[in-house]
C-alpha cells in the first residue's frame, strides 16, 4: 500500500462520511458542513494524484483544479450560510419544516 493509495482511501472515506451526515443530520449548518467535508475528500484525492507522476515532479493540473474547487466551495458555502439565516429568520428554526405540518 503506497501513500497515494492511502490518501485516496481517506478521501473516499471523507466523501462517504459527508454524504452520510448530509442525509442524516437535520440541522442545516451541519448539512453545509457535511457538503464541505465531501468536498475536502475530493480535494484530498486530487492533491494526492498530483504526486503520481514519474520523476517526482508534481503535476500542476490537479493543483489548479483544487484551487478552483476551493473557490467554488467557498462561494457556495457563503450563499448557503446566508440562506440558512433567511430560513431561520422566517421559520424560527434552522431546519426544513416537516412535510406534514405544511
Amino acid at each position: 500500500m503506497n501513500t497515494v493509495f492511502l490518501y485516496a482511501l481517506v478521501g473516499i472515506g471523507l466523501f462517504c462520511l459527508g454524504l452520510f451526515a448530509l442525509i442524516v443530520q437535520a440541522h442545516l449548518l451541519r448539512k453545509i458542513l457535511a457538503i464541505n467535508i465531501m468536498g475536502s475528500g475530493v480535494f484530498l484525492i486530487l492533491v494526492a494524484l498530483a504526486r503520481r507522476t514519474e520523476g517526482g515532479i508534481p503535476d500542476p493540473v490537479p493543483h489548479a483544479m483544487v484551487i478552483t474547487g476551493i473557490v467554488v466551495a467557498v462561494s457556495a458555502t457563503a450563499l448557503a450560510l446566508v440562506m440558512i439565516l433567511k430560513v431561520t429568520e422566517s421559520s424560527g428554526q434552522p431546519e426544513f419544516p416537516d412535510e406534514e405540518s405544511k
Partner: peptide
C-alpha cells in the same frame, strides 16, 4: 421560496 431554494441548493 427559501426552504425550496435551500433544498435545491443542497
Amino acid at each position: 421560496a427559501f426552504t425550496a431554494a435551500m433544498r435545491y441548493l443542497l
